[in-house]
Simulated scan of single mutants.
Amino acid sequence: MSTDNRLKINQLLSDNPSGIVYLSSWMVGQGYSLDLQKRYRKSDWLTSIGTGAMIRTGQDVTYQGAIYALQEQAGLSVHPGGKTALALLGKSHYLQMAPNKITLYGGADERLPTWFLNYDWGLELDYHGSSFLPPEIGLTEIEHKTFSIKISNASRALMECLYLAPKKQDLLECYQLMEGLNNLRPKEVQKLLESSSSIKVNRLFLYLGEKVNHAWFKHLDVSKIDLGEGKRSIIRNGVYDSKYKITIPKELANDEL
């Protein structure tokens, strides 16, 4: 390998944090041709983890390093959300969490690349693509070793949980999660609810917020939130709440938690 090419790979590795995935398409845009990338793999500087993705040889790369690449190199809105985000934020310590499962969210037209799906991250991936919330709001950055990634903040994370309820997320657990969110920012919650296109999520979030009776709930302007028209049957054989026009679990309605 020529001195110039060696200097170039050193520059790439020094300019970027350790423990991340390098996307081949992004590298081409940075001036690293496909042929040059092939030379770096042959010289054992980089190791392929699937078509279009590489890591620095010898480094232990976790799913966070892959999320970093999707966000910073591919410009995707894919992010840890729901219960995973709440766990990362320390908001779900009293709930039963699957230690080897992470929940990711992205836009309705976004898909996890094949290399991400096929690589063994040592955990189960649970991905949901939806556009019920805009991709640019309700996110916060968390540090992971040498870099940071965007994840859902607590308000958005709970809304993502409610989006999956009741088929893929237990509503009683959502209530328990809401109980722990006593310090949400009213303006932040208001913006998310006004931006949400899911009537189910909006009604359930307000129902749970009011039931828990957190101080921030009193500062919301419900008149600006789209609650739709008519009744919504959330679950079968539930109890009907006339204010929010939803059916909810009997245990939740009767405070049998």
Rank of each mutant, 00 (worst) to 15 (best):
L257S: 04
L172G: 13
R232E: 07
L139M: 06
Q37Y: 00
K191T: 15
V78M: 04
G138L: 06
L133F: 14
V78Q: 08
D4W: 09
H219F: 14
S148A: 10
N202S: 12
E143I: 11
L46D: 01
Q30T: 00
G180C: 12
E143M: 09
Q96Y: 13
V212I: 15
G138C: 06
K243A: 08
L86W: 02
L164K: 15
S33L: 01
R232F: 11
G52M: 01
L192I: 14
W45P: 02
L193A: 12
D44I: 08
R41T: 04
T47M: 00
S92K: 09
N100V: 03
G81V: 05
T140I: 10
S197M: 09
G230V: 00
M159Y: 10
E143G: 09
T114D: 04
K211W: 08
A74P: 03
M178R: 13
W115F: 09
T140V: 13
S197N: 13
Y240C: 07
L206R: 10
V21W: 01
V201C: 08
I20R: 01
M54E: 00
E136A: 07
G31A: 04
L36M: 10
K187C: 07
R111G: 03
P99G: 08
H214W: 15
L76S: 15
K224N: 12
L12A: 06
G106C: 08
W26S: 01
L192A: 11
I20L: 01
K211G: 10
V28I: 13
I137S: 08
F205Y: 15
T62N: 03
E188G: 06
Y40R: 01
S223H: 10
L89N: 08
D255N: 15
G75W: 05
V28K: 09
S242R: 15
V239Y: 11
K168I: 03
G129F: 05
Y240N: 04
R56M: 01
Y68W: 15
R41N: 03
L23T: 04
D44V: 05
E194V: 13
